[in-house]
Write a protein that binds this DNA or RNA. Structure first.
Lengths: 234, 234
DNA sequence: CGCCGGACTTGATTCCGGTCAAAGCCCGCT
DNA sequence: AGCGGGCTTTGACCGGAATCAAGTCCGGCG
């Protein structure tokens, strides 16, 4: 058990899960931990693509700016998620920390060399990328076809599940307090809505007794079944 | 040059591009060509995931049905595109031919075995999946933030580019006749709009002299720059 | 050649979510 | 505790796309 196991947080969910000890040692030599403050960016769209990373803690977003100026978040990154696009020359999206976050950074070139020498690593990354593609396609369906309330319900359910998986406090139990990693503006950017609409829809869910809020970031799911029904409704 | 090279259409863009002759022979032994009529489906969401395939000709769509009944197309598949999700147990989306199409099918288990034995294959699939993820994320931005006219312009430009790349007749030249692989309904499913809105927006583009239509499927881009400007506009 | 059916277009109206504007509230700071 | 500023809520109004409802056109077939 070398130190890199910690670095990758949850051993069996991380990229490094299947590596032998020699490879783990090599990875730990290549990786560099870095803390990010909330709002701090790791890279911007168009930058030279020089790094890959693993999320150790916190939540980050992947986003693009439209030519006309408003933002669309195309993905959220939780602990054990992978950052970066091997083999590409430039970076496709901004990556910004939503909360305080910590990542384990690898320079892209040596990371690619590690992949060539450890096929398990490449295989892990392939499976992960396929899942991410699937996740992204499911979100396409939300943005293309679902109402504001269904989108919001979907986001809340997704956050709840991801927070529970990464052991960041939440649990699937009813009434558990979840600390939202996003502001209203950031939620609007994910959902393809405006901040006002997000606020109104949260209000409706509260009025219906489906959720309760606590301060700006705190949230409790009181009626999971109702929330799921709203997500599935058109 | 074994027969499989034909199967994969464009050698250097296909999955098999980097395989040695022995592996190519093996691939050709495993693959089975299949023709699909327009409208015919290869698989449905929820099916057991038993196959992978390469698109040889024609255009197919990847789509999901919302619980409430309407369809969202989450991706279009052109010649040399890969179909399937190795390592997954079930199928995530319906796959349906939009035009007459031809695919080269592999059973999933032997395909995965081939991947394990030919790391170039795995590497190719990884790069391809990363590109596809990027494509999907860019489309998220369209569905989340763009108006009907910008979405339509984006789709037309994408179709034009993909048809040109796959040598299916179109060319980037002004006024070239493109045969649209989709009906209005199918365009609406991709764009997250209704058929009426698609029709109206096509009308506007015609009135503005940006495009011209020829029958139901024929289309000419008369002012590429204007079309691109509309795509980039909010 | 004319008919038929499905795809497409066009028009009238409705409604969801955006926009603009004005409070209200949380929370860190002094 | 009091204050200030940014985040959030709430309200009035507007507009773009959906919906509902006729038509019209293309293309295949007898």
């Amino acid at each position: 058990m070398t130190k890199v196991c910690e670095d990758c947080v949850v051993r069996d969910r991380s990229l490094c899960g299947t590596l032998d000890d020699a490879a783990l040692t090599e990875m730990s030599r290549l990786g560099r931990r870095r803390k990010l403050a909330a709002g701090e960016s790791l890279q911007f769209e168009g930058d030279d693509n020089i790094l890959c990373a693993n999320v150790l803690g916190g939540v980050l977003k992947l986003s693009s700016l439209t030519p006309s100026g408003d933002a669309q978040t195309v993905g959220l990154l939780y602990p054990a998620d992978f950052i970066g696009r091997p083999y590409a020359d430039t970076v496709d999206h901004d990556i910004t920390a939503l909360t305080e976050a910590e990542v384990c950074i690898f320079a892209r070139a040596p990371f690619e060399r590690m992949m060539a020498e450890n096929i398990q690593l490449e295989r892990q990354l392939l499976e992960r990328t396929l899942s991410e593609l699937e996740r992204s396609r499911r979100w396409l369906l939300f943005l293309g076809r679902k109402s504001a309330s269904a989108r919001l319900a979907g986001l809340i359910i997704d956050i709840d599940r991801r927070m529970a998986q990464t052991g960041c406090g939440a649990d699937l139990g009813i009434g558990q307090l979840i600390q939202l990693p996003l502001t209203r503006t950031e939620m609007a950017d994910v959902l393809g809505l405006t901040i006002e609409t997000v606020s109104r829809e949260i209000g409706k869910l509260k009025d219906a007794g489906v959720i309760a809020t606590e301060g700006r970031r705190g949230l409790r799911i009181l009626k999971p079944a109702a929330l799921k029904a709203i997500m599935d409704s058109e």
